[in-house]
């Protein structure tokens, strides 16, 4: 089973310019979704889906022009199939442009945890390891 999503794209723009499209809500909205994102570790934010549901997120990593990661989960108060996952972006300068790598990983479905609050810290790291493959 595939446990991780990975996409690599190349752009002619420099990492600084691509970074703006990952971190400025007015630019993110043009290709993703509206959000109240801020590039601050620990910041809680939401993307608004076209059907007015939310993707609930928390910023995990910000390394300007290089690295960005956030928790990506659905609205646990509104769903019967809560999941959590991690989205991370890596920008690398190549020639005059940028290589952008998206990794969406760590998927877990947590139907029974809806009643719990603050679920992210609660998650078993062991299970995360299991879903990401055995450690060798």
């Amino acid at each position: 089973m595939t446990k991780t999503i990975k996409h690599t794209f190349y752009f002619n723009q420099a990492p600084q310019e691509v970074w703006d499209y990952l971190t400025k809500p007015e630019l993110m909205e043009q290709w993703m979704m509206p959000s109240d994102f801020k590039p601050i570790v620990g910041h809680h934010f939401r993307f608004t889906n076209p059907n007015n549901t939310f993707v609930v997120c928390e910023v995990l990593e910000v390394k300007p022009f290089t690295n960005l990661a956030y928790v990506w989960k659905n609205d646990w108060t509104k769903t019967k199939t809560p999941y959590t996952s991690k989205v991370s972006w890596t920008l690398t300068p190549v020639d005059t442009g940028t290589e952008l790598v998206l990794v969406h990983s760590g998927f877990e479905l947590l139907r029974d945890l809806v009643s719990h609050s603050g679920g992210w810290a609660f998650l078993s790291t062991k299970l995360r390891d299991l879903l990401n493959g055995p450690k060798k």
Binding site: H7, F9, F11, N12, Q13, E17, V18, Y21, Q30, W31, M32, L100, L102
Partner: peptide
């Protein structure tokens, strides 16, 4: 989504 970003850029 990434194809959309590609088009924009």
């Amino acid at each position: 989504k990434l194809k959309k970003l590609e088009t924009i850029l």
